[in-house]
Amino acid sequence: MNDMRNNNDVGDISDIDDMSGDIILKTRDLKKTFMQGKIPVHALRGVDIDIKRSELVSIVGPSGSGKSTMLSIIGMLEKPTQGKVFIDNIEVTKAKNKDIPKLRREKIGFVFQHFNLLSVLSALGNVEIAMRFARVPKKKRMTRAKEVLTEMGLGDRLKHKPSELSGGEQQRVSIARALANRPAIILADEPTGEVDTKTRELIINILRRLSDHGQTVIIVTHDPWVAERTDRTIKLVDGKIEDLLK
């Protein structure tokens, strides 16, 4: 119960923060506890982060430190045990369950380590489906899907199924899919975890370019080479931020 009062205090401070810059993502006292049977697992123990629009940020840390949990909560796939998340000044942690899919479509684009493309659909279909849920008319969906895929250098791979694409190509399809609805933030969980060094460079360059064009990107990575190429690195250790600035 005293946590509640705590939250309110933090809320007041965050209002002042809003004035200070173009903050697109803000978390306050984010905590997540999973119950492993009867044993609580504290995946996040109070995380405060502020990320500016157009920033390319990396989150690093040992395995089990809570990086994926963090992304899931920001992406509204999971609710925090405590704390708040603001995206574009909207307190998404306060949103009703039924509004979450819409918020997720508008604010978040996911890129996963294992690409997670739908195997029955072509590259075009995989990108286009993201817009279906947003009820975008078919013509517009097709145009937009072709546009982002072409941007990713896949203009000649539109009709290919994921199984007919290389790892790097699949990851680019999944980036295109994440971009389709023009989300506020791209959340990428180990996007280079399954590709060779040449593709790794290609992917990072793409994400860099997106950031330069105003897209906010958060990358979770184990790879120092990738972290070095981001604007800022946040290190999570045991569910807490260890070192905020690079």
Binding site: P101, R105, F110, N116, A130, F133, A134
Partner: peptide, 16 residues
């Protein structure tokens, strides 16, 4: 299971 997870991550609603 995984596919539904992906669809939800893409913003699919329960009713979709």
């Amino acid at each position: 299971t995984k596919e539904f997870g992906i669809l939800k991550a893409l913003g699919a609603q329960q009713r979709d």
